[in-house]
Write a protein that binds this DNA or RNA. Structure first.
Lengths: 367, 367
DNA sequence: CTGTTAGCGCGTTCAG
DNA sequence: CTGAACGCGCTAACAG
C-alpha cells in the first residue's frame, strides 16, 4: 500500500483520484465503488458508507473521457459561429446554451471569424470530440465547393451517430443527413420593403451586405420582389455594399451621400449596419425619418438604442438556437420534433419610429 | 473482410471507424496506423501509402476521449459567465475564444445566469471534463460561503492539474491556487466621477447595480472616494439600485424622476443601464447633457449608439479574456506570464458628448 | 521498419 | 452482495 502512495507522490505531482484509489482506501474492489456511484445496484450499507467516505476524502471526480470511451459519455452540443460579439449570434448562442443545459449537455463553442478554413478545422475538432450535435449558423457563399464539403461532413457526422444542423443556411439537397433551421428571411425583407413602398417611397437604397452570401441574397430577393409588386423598377445604383459592422457602414454611407442624395429611404441589411448608416445620415444634416426613412433587420439591441427607434424585422434568433438543439437531440427520439429535419421559423416587422412618408416633391424623384 | 462489413451493419447502424478498422483494411497492425497518423516515426513508404488510403476510405477520425485517456488529450479551456448576450461578456468570450484557438484549445462554454447553484454545477462538469483551465467572470456576492466553496474548488482543480482563473473577482487569500485577472475598477469609477465633479456637478446620482456584488461595490467605492476628494458630502438619497438591463434601468429612473429631480448628473454603473436611464431622462423632457450629464461604464456598443455619444470608462474585456487563457496555459511554462498569478489591467475614461457643466443655478442645489 | 504486449479509467459481464 | 476478468480506442514500451 505504501508503495502506491509513493507512486502517487513521485510521478506527476498532480493526479486526480481514480476509482482504484478510492477502492483501495475503502478496502473494496473497483466495481463496488462504481456501483455505489451509479446507485442502481444493491450494496451493503456498511460498505457503501466506507466507500462514500473515501469518495469524499479523496475528492473523487469521474473521468469523462474514460466514461465516454465506455459509451456513457459526455454528451456535448457543439456550435460554430462567426463572432460571439454580434448581438444576433449572441442571442442564438444563448438559445443553444439554455436548451443544451436543459438536456444536461455541455456546450462546445468555436468561432470561425467567417473563414471557411477555420470553420472546417472547427468541424473536425468537433467530430473528434464526438459531439452529439454540431450546429452551424451564419451566412456563407453557397458555391459548389461548399456544398460538396458540407455534404461530405454531414455524411461523416451522421455515420458517427452525430447530427449536423445548419441554421440560416439553405438545405444541401435530397438525401443528405442534415437538419435545417431557417427563418422567413426573404419574406421579412419583402415585408419591410413593402412597408416603405406603402409609405410612398420609390427610391429605396438597399444598403450593406454582399449578395454573394446567402443571407444577403435572400434579403435582396425580398427587396426586389416587393419592388416588383409595386411596379417600381429595380435600379442597380440603389444597391450599396458594406461590411457587417458599424464602422464600414458609416463610411460607405458617407461616400454614397457625397456622390448623390437620390433616395428617400434606406433598407439596411442589418440593425448594426443601420446604426452606422444613421450616424452618417445625421452627420450629413439629414433628418430621420423626416428627410429619409430607415429600416433595419434582426431586431437586436442597437435597434432600441438608436434615435429614432428603428423599424426593423424581428428574427427569432434565440428560438432558432433552442430549436436547433431540440431537433438534433430529439432526432430519433419521440419528442415534438422527432424525425423532423427542416423547420422554418417566422419573422415579422416591428414598427417603430424610423419610417415616414417621403418629403413632399421627392416621391417621384428624377430617374 | 465481408464479415466485418456485416458486423458494421447489424450492430449499431452508426459507428465511427477506429484504428482497428483501418488496420484491418490496410492489412497492418494497429500501432502502425497510429504511427502513420502521428508521423513522428519511420514507416515504410508502401505501408504508409496503404494506411493513408484506408484512412481516407474509412473517413477515420481519432477519438478524442481515448486519446485523452492516454494522456495526449483534448485540451480544453472552459469558461463560465452570466449571459452571453451582454456585450461585455461577449467581448470577454471573444478574447478567450481567440486565444484558446491560438493555443489549439477547444472552448467549453457554460452560462450561469448569475445563479451560484448553476455556477457550481457547471464547475463540476468542467472538472469531470478535465479542462485544462476553468475561467469564471462576473460579479458575485463575496461572502464567507462563496470564499469557502471557491477555495475548495480551486484546490481540487489544482490537484487535478487544472487551473482556476477568476476574472473581475477579488482574490481568495494567500496560498489558494488561483489566478486572478482584474481591471482597475475602482480607479475607473473614481476617474469618471472626478470628471463630473470637475465639470461642476455636486449632486451626482449613482445609478444601477447592487452594492452586494463585488463589481458594483468597487465602482461605488470609486464614486465615494472621488466625492471625498472634492469635499462633497455623500448622500444616500443619491444612490439608486437597478438591475443590469435596459428595461429595469428605464423604470427605476422614471420612478426616481417622478420622486425628485434633485441631481444634475448621473453615473450609470453600466453602459446598458445608461441606455435605459437616457431613455427615461429624454422622455421626461430633460436634455442630456444640457440639463443633466450622464456617464456609463464598460465602453461597449450601446455607448456609441446612443445620442449623445456616451462618455464612459473603457474596460479591456477582450484583453482580459486573452490574458486569462495565457495565464492559465502558461502557468508552469516559460512564457510571458509564467509563474504569475495576479494581473491588473488598466481602465481609462473615454470622453464623448454626454457631459457638460450643470445648468446655471443648479451647481449648488438645495440640500 | 513492424508487430506484440500492456495499460490509461471506467462500466459491464460473469462467477462466486 | 462482492470480486475477477474483459474491453472501449489509443499510444508507449519492448521485442523482433
Amino acid at each position: 500500500m505504501t508503495n502506491d502512495f509513493r507512486k502517487g507522490a513521485d510521478g506527476a505531482r498532480h493526479r486526480r483520484a481514480t476509482l482504484k484509489d478510492v477502492a483501495r482506501r475503502a478496502e473494496v474492489s473497483v466495481p463496488t465503488v462504481s456501483r455505489v456511484i451509479a446507485g442502481d445496484y444493491p450494496v451493503a450499507l456498511g460498505t457503501r458508507r466506507r466507500v462514500e467516505k473515501a469518495l469524499r476524502e479523496l475528492d473523487y471526480v469521474a473521468n469523462t473521457h474514460a466514461r465516454a470511451l465506455r459509451g456513457h459519455g459526455a454528451k456535448t452540443v457543439a456550435f460554430i459561429l462567426r463572432d460571439v460579439r454580434g448581438q444576433a449570434f449572441a442571442q442564438f448562442a444563448h438559445g443553444i446554451e439554455e436548451e443544451a443545459s436543459r438536456w444536461g449537455r455541455l456546450c462546445l463553442l468555436c468561432v470561425s471569424g467567417g473563414d471557411p478554413v477555420r470553420e472546417l478545422r472547427a468541424l473536425n475538432l468537433m467530430r473528434q470530440q464526438g459531439a452529439e450535435a454540431v450546429i452551424i449558423i451564419g451566412s456563407i457563399v453557397d458555391d459548389e465547393a461548399y456544398r460538396r464539403q458540407m455534404t461530405e461532413i454531414a455524411r461523416s457526422l451522421d455515420q458517427a451517430g452525430s447530427r449536423l444542423v445548419l441554421c440560416g443556411r439553405p438545405p444541401l439537397g435530397e438525401g443528405v443527413p442534415v437538419t435545417i433551421v431557417e427563418y422567413e428571411n426573404e419574406a421579412g425583407a419583402h415585408a419591410v420593403t413593402s412597408r416603405l413602398l406603402a409609405a410612398g417611397h420609390r427610391r429605396i437604397l438597399l444598403f450593406g451586405g454582399d449578395v454573394a452570401f446567402t443571407t444577403s441574397a435572400q434579403r435582396f430577393a425580398g427587396y426586389r420582389r416587393a419592388l416588383t409588386d409595386y411596379g417600381v423598377p429595380y435600379e442597380e445604383d440603389l444597391v450599396v455594399k458594406a461590411a457587417f459592422d458599424r464602422g464600414d457602414a458609416y463610411l460607405r454611407m458617407r461616400e454614397r451621400l457625397a456622390a448623390a442624395r437620390d433616395f428617400t429611404a434606406v433598407f439596411a441589411l442589418t440593425d448594426v449596419i443601420a446604426a452606422g448608416a444613421l450616424r452618417a445620415l445625421t452627420e450629413a444634416g439629414l433628418q430621420v425619418p423626416g428627410d429619409v426613412s430607415l429600416v433595419g433587420y434582426d431586431d437586436v439591441p442597437p435597434a432600441t438604442d438608436l434615435r429614432p427607434l428603428l423599424t426593423t424585422v424581428h428574427v427569432p434568433y434565440e428560438e432558432m438556437g433552442r430549436t436547433a438543439v431540440q431537433l438534433a437531440l430529439d432526432h430519433r427520439g419521440s419528442g415534438r420534433f422527432a424525425r423532423e429535419s427542416h423547420v422554418l421559423l417566422g419573422t415579422h416587422v416591428v414598427f417603430r419610429d424610423s419610417v415616414a412618408p417621403p418629403p413632399a416633391g421627392t416621391a417621384r424623384a428624377p430617374r
